[in-house]
Design a protein around this nucleic acid. Structure first.
Lengths: 231, 231
DNA sequence: CTTTATTGTCATCAAATTGTCATATTGACA
DNA sequence: TGTCAATATGACAATTTGATGACAATAAAG
């Protein structure tokens, strides 16, 4: 459940409060005190989620969100808006702009964490940090353990991440390029064919418990994790 | 889950309501109608949790909480503040003082119980004084003693805190950064690799009783304390 | 004010992981 | 069936990562 979360909030006290809380919850918070600074940060690297104060000096939260939604690169980053109780109409505007949820200030740490987790679960399952299981194959990010029918399975770091991604996005084909983006990170220069090798290593490890059949090749397209028999 | 809960609330009607509710939920509530009286009660015996009205005649809730946080004996008692919907600014102040959660008046019994339960559950593992034990390895924070199969084990201060944290959060992987935050404190500048060294020292000390196997390395992720075989 | 523990950092060694390539297989289709 | 493109596989060298021992700085104890 470790996600990079961008906090956009101009009030220093509240910002620090939120930062501290996110850190405590195991996330990696990044701060911005204005939409402009936030845009610069987003240009650098894409966060997994944005906590956005709706009342900002300069560019408003609405405008900032609108820009993010206009760019295909940032369109899918979940946004939770922070809003004062009186700014009811902003909630409407916010949801229309595409915010995933809103938190009314003042809010409790517990509420904030719950909402963040809920949104992550919906929008970025692999960041939610929950154990995944299918057909006796089980992967738990918290303990970093993988078992097949309760027998331990050893995986290297990359194979672990690969399996984690596939298990949180099953029944769907991903091209090698997509897998590189999702599992390796969007800014790496790695040969497409390298994915093949890691798929093979993953299959090799799953073979011991007969779960290797879950990893299916879709000729000409990529790979897929599926509980259904191949073809 | 039965806990002694101190209720600090000057309004008799609300106080009785809360008391009744707590009793109904199986807790042992104690009442105080002012911060002064509450302080006296806390001096007598430490409650497991404090429900604190933020608006009190005489010493305010903020001041009361600050005092509790200043005393090492009472620092770790969880505080849930009770606040009227209009006292929004106070919540912010409350967060800074270290309250664990907030309940906005008027509140439902269901909400109150849920929040109390959540806070108790969260605070439980970190609760100081409780001895922890697993597979013959025992650590008692009160006496600051560690034994393996009843044989004493010598640990340096840092190794002690490290083991304490790991034993209260077993089976879970923690990155070096997380361990630095949790064991060293959030605001220290220490090299990541330093954790390795202390892990080694800890293992060295546990070796005498064969408990060193509990401290497991998760390559690429961090460390984990686990009773399960490493691989 | 010595003497002793404790801590954080490094340098070094061993082991695991990773990306790539060359080569073998496989599958689609004329 | 033969051909071609895509995928699987085995091997390998470079790179990372963790373990370990030594050491100087600092804190604690006597």
């Amino acid at each position: 459940m470790s996600a990079m979360i961008l906090v956009v909030e101009d009030e220093p006290a509240i910002r620090e409060l939120v930062m501290l809380n996110l850190q405590q919850a195991g996330h990696r918070p990044v701060a911005a005190d204005s939409a402009e600074q936030a845009l610069a940060l987003v240009r650098e690297s894409l966060p997994d989620m944005i906590l956005l104060d709706w009342m900002l000096p300069g560019m408003s939260g609405v405008e900032f969100a609108r820009r993010l939604k206009a760019d295909s690169r940032t369109r899918d980053v979940p946004i939770i808006m922070l809003t004062a109780r009186s700014e009811e109409q902003d909630k409407i505007a916010g949801l229309e702009t595409g915010a995933d949820d809103y938190i009314t200030k003042p809010f409790s740490p517990r509420e904030m964490n719950a909402r963040i987790k809920a949104v992550l679960r919906r929008r970025a399952p692999q960041k939610a940090g929950e154990a995944v299981e299918m057909t006796g194959l089980r992967l738990d990010p918290a303990t970093h353990r993988v078992t097949g029918n309760d027998r331990p399975i050893e995986l290297g770091p990359t194979e672990f991440r690969l399996l984690h991604f596939l298990m949180t996005h099953p029944e769907r084909v991903y091209s090698r390029a997509q897998l590189l983006d999702q599992v390796w990170g969007n800014h790496v220069f790695v040969e497409d064919r390298t994915v093949d090798v890691h798929i093979r290593r993953l299959r090799g490890a799953l073979e011991a418990t007969g779960h290797d059949g879950l990893v299916q090749t879709v000729r000409g397209s990529g790979y897929r994790l599926s509980v259904h028999a191949e073809r």
